[in-house]
């Protein structure tokens, strides 16, 4: 397309040490931005506070699905080994008496109840994590930056997205410049 135009996507400021990025993050936080982020090569402790983030609630998902796993296991084993009705035409259960125990005996079912709880909890944590952080996403405009490749090596970056309500080409630039970045660049994305 001949007249493809570009629009600003985000500002990207680069820092060399954990302390400089934490200090800059606190400034951006206090300036009231919402759609911004810090990019670090490893999980940096203390950045939650520096960025003013709320605690994560992913544990709720894990807990709910873990409990669901336990319930599924109880239902599955009771249905197949203790009762003989036919639900949804999947086949009737078959009460089994083994070792003189009643068909629905609870103790021998504990291991599988536990394992299924763990399994569902683990799967839910994985997919819950991907859902919350909106990955996979292979086409973020931040990857346009050459310098950003160091974000997974030894540099630290702050990005402020153009979608933020307070984003302003001049004032945001001034804010980031005041934090002494090693480099500061405006990343643009193509408008379709």
């Amino acid at each position: 397309m001949a007249n493809q135009t570009k629009q600003p996507a985000l500002y990207l400021a680069e820092y060399g040490t954990p302390n400089t990025i934490a200090k800059a993050a606190m400034k951006v936080r206090d300036a009231g931005y919402q759609k911004w982020d810090c990019h670090t090569p490893y999980a940096m402790h203390g950045m939650d506070e520096a960025m003013g983030l709320k605690p994560t609630r992913i544990g709720v998902i894990s807990f709910i699905f873990g409990m669901l796993g336990l319930a599924t296991a109880v239902f599955m084993m009771q249905y197949t080994n203790a009762f003989s009705f036919n639900l949804l035409n999947i086949g009737a259960g078959y009460p089994l008496v083994v070792g003189g125990k009643p068909p629905g005996a609870f103790p021998p079912m504990v291991p599988i109840i536990f394992e299924l709880g763990i399994l569902l909890c683990g799967l839910a944590t994985l997919f819950g994590l991907l859902y919350i952080i909106k990955l996979p996403m292979h086409n973020h405009p931040i990857f346009e930056s050459e310098r950003f490749e160091a974000a997974s090596d030894d540099r630290f970056f702050i990005s402020i997205e153009a979608g933020d309500q307070k984003f302003d080409l001049e004032r945001t630039k001034a804010l980031l410049e005041a934090t002494d970045p090693i480099s500061l660049e405006l990343i643009e994305e193509e408008v379709q």
Binding site: S62, G122, T125
Partner: peptide
Amino acid sequence: ALGWRGAHRHWQHYERAYLIFAGI
């Protein structure tokens, strides 16, 4: 890599998920 960009908003949930995996 799923488009991982080292964002702290990701690390925050990631770390907790990692802790949950360790815990289970």
